[in-house]
Design a protein around this nucleic acid. Structure first.
Lengths: 111, 111
DNA sequence: TCATATACCTAATTCAATTAGGTATTATGG
DNA sequence: CCATAATACCTAATTGAATTAGGTATATGA
């Protein structure tokens, strides 16, 4: 079911950037649920990992935020900046490249 | 050329176990060169990463060592224990599973 | 009313990997 | 013949992303 968390390291930013690119503005809690759904439950992005990563991406200028009042609760949407969009594309391409290399090194067929 | 080192995190043990499984007994310096060659220069496994990992695998009982005297120099071969062989298989399978999941999440085709 | 879900967050810790060395032997080009 | 590169082992200190383990508050369904 769930993957070894070791392998997930280094992929969190890529996942989040891609989610934001495909889905447009998304709030934090929603991101964890989208990842869980897309991965059929095998990638469980905890909030302790999510929020620091989002804040890091924001500090790097790759995402920006919009606060929306929902009843008495403030919901914070995250969305890509233009640089974020470009970076999302690059990171995904890099990941594809990486798994191609790894497939060769590990001598496995990805079909 | 070289990949973002972030993505490599968590894959080092898998790479090393697979090299030892395919190649049989191999010494440390040789492992770095095999990985570099197999990856066409895009995975540069430094010795600072390699040796601690090999020692960790040894402590976990997945690899054992054989010292061979080459002239005045001691060469230390690393080879899989039976548990290491089994673990190598499992780790590679896990990695394949992981990239399948990631392909879905990132919506990319691996061909 | 009480647990569960929603929704944001952070502080402390962990631990693999990076950086930056150290030591010594063996080949090789000028 | 000598200096440099290549071979070959290693470790200590640091980094930094992720994990663990919380905290706060609102909304909802049984």
């Amino acid at each position: 079911m769930a993957h070894s968390p070791e392998l997930l390291k280094g992929t969190l930013q890529t996942i989040i950037l891609k989610i934001l690119k495909d889905h447009g503005k998304t709030y934090g809690y929603e991101i964890t649920h989208r990842v869980k759904e897309l991965s059929a439950g095998s990638i469980l992005l905890t909030e302790g990992a999510l929020y620091p990563t989002l804040h890091r991406l924001e500090a790097e200028g790759l995402v920006k935020t919009e606060k929306v009042l929902m009843g008495k609760r403030v919901r914070k949407y995250y969305l890509l900046t233009p640089e974020g969009k470009s970076e999302a594309k690059d990171r995904v391409a890099e990941f594809v490249d990486f798994i191609k290399t790894m497939s060769t090194v590990l001598q496995v067929n990805i079909a």
